[in-house]
């Protein structure tokens, strides 16, 4: 459907709906529910240079209209993902994917991005900078402008593919950080990653998550994501993929008003595996209701 098409740099998507990294595995856990080819694209499970088991369980907690996870980037490592997962995925999903990478030092990011540069299936490289910088104090790469800029600068050197930096919301100056990434050559911004939360067992008083803290996501965070996308849209001239709490076609419209060119749906997939399909089916109806002819007409409407 022509009116749902959006563009992220040179990549044209049939619609703006993309399942978010970490909620869609490597693409085949939803085959019982719908054909993944209806999606605009897929952001794959966060991948690191080396295999990772992730955190000790329990890894999941919940709250009103949301959940916490401390999965800890469990993945088989980028070599196995390229050699096995992408090959399997190519048989069931015929569009380009968004490859999400993480690292614990800059060299790991660079090596991952370098390995992806010549892979045709990869339409966008999404660089998750919410991980701790193990070599330099353990603070997240996404927590200040200079470390966000240095990751962007170094990965930019090894690829010509579109680079989207995925920002952490656990900062006081997200628009400044987005601008630093743009200045160092980022082609786009994915935002937001999860907020940091914790829950405690009422009977024992102990943390529910073994890791104590976890990433807080779900419909409860939608207003935070909308506010941050709004702020970043004011500061940068590169496209934004809006992420955070989206569960309906109305949420998609609102996120695009705030400034997103496309959106990702995360936790809602886990609660209702049909969410992305329902949102794609509902979008034309909601657009009719709101007198929207083409979805691209509304990007950044909140600013006009």
């Amino acid at each position: 459907m022509e009116r749902l098409k959006v563009k992220l740099n040179n990549l044209e998507l049939d619609n703006p709906v993309i399942p978010a990294s970490g909620t869609y595995g490597f693409g085949y856990d939803y085959l019982d529910f719908y054909d993944p080819n209806i999606l605009g694209s897929i952001s794959l499970k966060g991948t690191t240079l080396h295999p990772r088991f992730g955190n000790v369980t329990p890894r999941i907690a919940e709250c009103h209209m949301g959940m916490l996870n401390s999965v800890g980037l469990q993945n088989p490592g980028i070599h196995k993902v390229i050699e096995e997962e992408l090959v399997k995925l190519d048989k069931i999903y015929h569009k380009k994917i968004i490859f999400n990478v993480s690292g614990f030092n800059i060299d790991e990011y660079v090596e991952c991005v370098r390995l992806l540069d010549n892979i045709d299936k990869v339409g966008i490289i999404e660089v998750n900078i919410s991980c701790p910088n193990v070599k330099d104090g353990g603070l997240s790469f996404g927590s200040d402008c200079s470390s966000a800029a240095s990751v962007t600068k170094e990965v930019r050197k090894v690829t010509t593919k579109p680079l989207f930096i995925k920002l952490s919301p656990n900062v006081s100056n997200i628009a400044d950080i987005a601008k630093s990434c743009e200045d160092e050559g980022a082609d786009g911004i994915s935002m937001i990653n999860t907020l940091i939360g914790a829950r405690f067992n009422l009977k024992t008083g102990k943390p529910i998550l073994h890791n104590v803290t976890g990433g807080f996501s779900g419909p409860a965070i939608l207003p935070v994501a909308l506010r941050m996308v709004y702020e970043v849209y004011e500061r940068v001239n590169i496209p934004i993929i809006g992420i955070g709490g989206i569960s309906s076609a109305y949420d998609v419209i609102e996120m695009m008003y705030a400034g997103a060119s496309a959106i990702q749906i995360g936790s809602s997939n886990l609660v209702d595996p049909y969410t992305c399909k329902k949102v794609i089916d509902d979008l034309p109806l909601v657009m009719d209701e709101l007198n929207i002819k083409k979805i691209t007409d509304i990007i950044g409407r909140a600013h006009k």
Binding site: T23, F53, T57, R59, N69, Q74, N269, L270
Partner: peptide, 8 residues
């Protein structure tokens, strides 16, 4: 159903 890796 296998998507989130919460119960590994």
């Amino acid at each position: 159903f296998g998507a989130c890796m919460g119960c590994s």
